[in-house]
Design a protein around this nucleic acid. Structure first.
Lengths: 346, 346
DNA sequence: CACCGGAGATTCATCGTTGTCAAAGAGTGA
DNA sequence: TCACTCTTTGACAACGATGAATCTCCGGTG
């Protein structure tokens, strides 16, 4: 590992001049610059970011706090964010919270002060705690839950997305549309479920269809998975309640529902249409491929980093928190259209 | 952000004494230690790891280079590794290579010198390049491909795992067992496929069954996914070749196969048994739940970090590379047993 | 009583950079 | 030629911590 000093000696200039060249500062003659560049190349010198960070106080390392990595939505979000961060010249440090408020706070206490910024998908954090986090380190939350007005947040178009999904179903002639994944506990960490249910109601209202509580299925676990989806759907089927479409609030639920429906001998989409939310890879590869709301992951990543960048540069230091809602896309596949695309098509 | 200096002033001792206390060094009186601890608590002081790293040259940050995060095997591996690293007091920096040798090298050139160590799941790296990487930074490869004898590597029991899987099938009475996921290109980056095929042959030989080339299905893409699994299985079915079991070399392939088999009207496992490799969550939640070889992810994480730790401490500096093969477990579920467990069990 | 050993604490230099400030050279106008 | 810019360059301190060397007591010895 060569240092700036080595480069300086080799180029026959002072250390500071090398620093100037490396950082593209002005007031270096073309000739010197070339000499230094040559020496840098010869020694394969790379500035020591540790030392640089120490000196400047700026850190090009940002944290990304997620509950899990093993769930498709989070791993693909992480991928997008890492790609976007690279464009900003930032390195991403992923931290797992397992959805525990304690861990979320501990992480911030521990690493927060030594991170340039933090992107966090909070789960257990209360309003007050979120504020604490944001005061420790420049933070942008990626969350469906509305926090106190003083923190920045990027969210999905939960409500509009499901509304559009219902509209899509209606336009295809389905009228008894079940909702899968509702939550009636009202707990704030289930905000996504609440908003999506609102969207479901909106969609029905748009179409002049009645809201039928018996078509609204609550599921149990805190995180939506296939088992829950399948179990919920079976309850509906066994209850003998007629339905011709299912809007699931997550792809995992939809995939579970798909199974239960097919297991019951119903054809998808001929007899029952199924759609999900998240547009994960699993949805694309399902059989039949699953219609889903793509929440604009790339845009979420982009916006989150844009907001964070502002915070890190102090551009918006005292502003109240900003909220960005990403655009969504309705990705229509076989599970609501039938026979139009080969299995596996996008 | 308070510094050691602040703590020193507050406690009325020298900066170095604070350093001693923080690092648990001897030769500090109990009384002083208490004073310092109190000051640390009052100021909520946390040592600046950037400065510490600069001074000591030791870095508690290790890289984890993976091709993707969005594939279940990798994201769950990453989770395990992060958990294990925490136990060693290390922080993990995940880097994505997209399976490109160029990116793998670039990453090492760029970040390598400033990382304490590196865990890498190489894809495109040649033998010579792997050695280059290992010389840049203490490295442990997690890879099925055998590299040059001078690098450390942790691998799965590819061959033994599939062999056991075939044995399991045989013990249940299946005799025409198809292999899904073979590779005949011989390209070294497909080592996993080669080893698993070897295991398949071993299993047949153990049982005294003939190796039938028409039951061995090659798949196309570099990474195994459901579409490929399903396409391969359909070729087999349409070819009219009789079979009563499928050993897929990856869960994704097995899930695709499951669909194709069921689509063809065959019951699993009554008429056809299906099993995979990797033991991902998807396998557990599939319908029927999928028998799979669990490659010992936790052990892989543990061993990889143990090896890396040695390298980082220079304990084994000049030794030739070491190879650890993790134990595997055969996780038997409905897709080979039938009717014994409720869906989603195990 | 002078001397020694050792625990407990301190001072000073240092890791590899960047910010500040001053010095040296080059060019300009009077 | 001199005073005065403006550009280019360098010396030095500093970021926050640790390692080496040193200093200060204090009790124990001969």
């Amino acid at each position: 590992m060569s240092t700036m000093n080595d480069v300086a000696q080799r180029a026959g200039v002072s250390l500071k001049t090398v620093s100037r060249v490396v950082n593209g500062e002005p007031n270096v003659s073309e000739q010197t610059r070339r000499k230094v560049d040559a020496a840098i190349a010869e020694l394969d010198f790379r500035p020591n970011s540790v030392a640089r960070n120490l000196r400047t106080g700026r850190i090009d390392l940002i944290g990304l706090a997620l509950p899990y990595l093993s769930q498709p939505y989070f791993s693909s979000l992480a991928e997008e964010i890492m790609r976007e961060a690279e464009r900003h010249g930032l390195t991403v440090l992923i931290e797992l919270t397992e959805g525990d408020a304690e861990a979320e706070l501990a992480l911030v206490r521990e690493h927060g002060p030594h991170l340039g910024g933090l992107l966090m998908y909070p789960v257990g954090l209360s309003d007050a705690q979120a504020l604490t986090v944001a005061r420790t380190v420049p933070t942008v939350f990626i969350s469906e839950r509305a926090y106190d007005a003083h923190v920045d947040r990027v969210a999905m178009a939960n409500r509009e997305g499901v509304r559009a999904l219902v509209g899509h179903m209606v336009s295809l002639g389905y009228t008894r549309i079940a909702a899968l994944g509702a939550d009636h506990t009202g707990r704030p960490e289930r905000a996504a479920a609440h908003l999506r249910l609102d969207g479901y109601r909106d969609g029905l209202r748009d179409a002049g269809l009645p809201y039928l509580p018996e078509l609204v299925l609550e599921v149990g676990t805190p995180h939506w998975n296939r088992q829950e989806g399948s179990a919920g759907m079976r309850r509906l089927i066994e209850g003998g309640i007629p339905f011709d479409a299912v809007v699931a609030f997550a792809d995992a639920l939809a995939l579970g529902a798909l199974h239960a429906v097919q297991e019951a001998g119903l054809r998808v989409p001929a007899e029952v249409a199924v759609a999900g939310f998240d547009d994960t890879d699993d949805a694309r590869y399902a059989h039949p491929s699953l219609t889903s709301v793509a929440p604009g992951r790339a845009q979420i990543a982009r916006e989150a980093l844009a907001l964070l960048n502002d915070r890190m540069n102090g551009t918006v230091d005292q502003e109240p928190g900003r909220l960005v809602v990403a655009d969504f896309q309705l990705t229509v596949r076989e599970s609501t259209l039938g026979g139009m695309a080969a299995w596996g098509g996008a």
